[in-house]
Design a binder for these strands. Sequence first.
DNA 1: CAGTGGTCTAGACCACGAG
DNA 2: TCGTGGTCTAGACCACTGG
Lengths: 242, 242
Amino acid sequence: MTKSNTSRSTLHQTILADLERKIVSGEWPPGHKLPFEVELARSYEVSRMTVNKVMTQLTKAGLIERRKRSGTFVAKPRGQSAILEITDVEAEVRALNLPYSYKLMSSVIRKANRHDAALLEVPGTTDILEIRALHMAHGEPFCLEERLINLGTVPEAAHAPFADGPAGAWLVQRVPWSAAEHKIFAITATADIARLLEIAARVACLLIQRRTWSTAGPVTFVRFTYPGEKHAIVASFTPAAG
Amino acid sequence: MTKSNTSRSTLHQTILADLERKIVSGEWPPGHKLPFEVELARSYEVSRMTVNKVMTQLTKAGLIERRKRSGTFVAKPRGQSAILEITDVEAEVRALNLPYSYKLMSSVIRKANRHDAALLEVPGTTDILEIRALHMAHGEPFCLEERLINLGTVPEAAHAPFADGPAGAWLVQRVPWSAAEHKIFAITATADIARLLEIAARVACLLIQRRTWSTAGPVTFVRFTYPGEKHAIVASFTPAAG
DNA sequence: CAGTGGTCTAGACCACGAG
DNA sequence: TCGTGGTCTAGACCACTGG
């Protein structure tokens, strides 16, 4: 049997896009069991190897987890992998073998002002949730988190228990992101930041800004401020990480 | 014909490793023409599809370039891709549409001291080349570069024309890296750095440390210092960039 | 032990682009 | 034009692992 390429892209690209959409949109929530390779092959009317190619890519991307004999499942959205792990503050602290705690400082729902609108790329009429919180390691300030959440995309965040734990973890569990962007700066601590982080004024700080989108639109804008010099972002690379 | 897995890894992993070694070691220098898929398939005694899988991975990794009808060639080592581009300072400056210039400040060959040895992971007896240079945008200091080059791995660097242009570009053209590591810090500018970068003392700066290895061993350790707040590192991600 | 994913094959068609 | 890479297939074997 031969193939004539009806659409513009290849078969496995089409299938990849379709499965990716189902996962990222939440139609297949985390933990959902995917059809077996043979069944997918039948339903898409392709050979099993084409399906396997797609599944391999999804696995590499971390969207699915595969276990022999039991099948393939939508991965719990770690939401971040590799480099992106730099903003899972709790994991960072625990990796240092320090006790972690979290302190919510403020949580306000309001209309987006012009500044928010620019950061989140939303219209000014949107409701947003603004959070300010402190990540603590061994009882001492480790990182300041300032976050905007787009309630237009994630309305249920309005009633989430953000006093109990980091908003990042909550979001990542229910809003699969489809794109993210990091910006990393060095800043001089303002008096405000210095007080919160319990450091001297005008000390250098590492500022990580992260914006996240789902297919439904902008999700969150967050700014992590780390006391400088004590903290580093590390990333390792190999040319062919095959 | 069937296969019995003799070694521990898979066929395409074995072939991938072999080709990668040939390329990275310089046995197949940039521009070298690889055998056709069918020939590789014959010489490795595998099917063409297995070879194709490997070639696809090498292409994604940027190690080779493929052109229909003409064949497959070892890629000119851009040496850095994606995130790693953050240390191609010249490209950064030009991307800002500013005229770029480069000023070599010092270049010294000496034995590695204890400090160098720790940074480069070399024994204390190794000869190293220490370079200090300034990247300028529109005639103003843009970034300070402090670099150690392991002459044990790259002896020809001792006579390279580093007064003419950045050492990074020179290295990347002849020493394919097989691994790299970045660390990113925020630091407070010392008086020395402030003077060189023509900024006020105690301003926050973004410090990017990069270590690079080839299969022959450690190649270079480099520290880029950017005036803070003016500079940002940006990285964008999609979960399945397949 | 049986079913699943992981891998590989031999062959095929097609689009592209250098000659 | 026609050789090359890009893609796909139908079928096969195997290792692993959960029932």
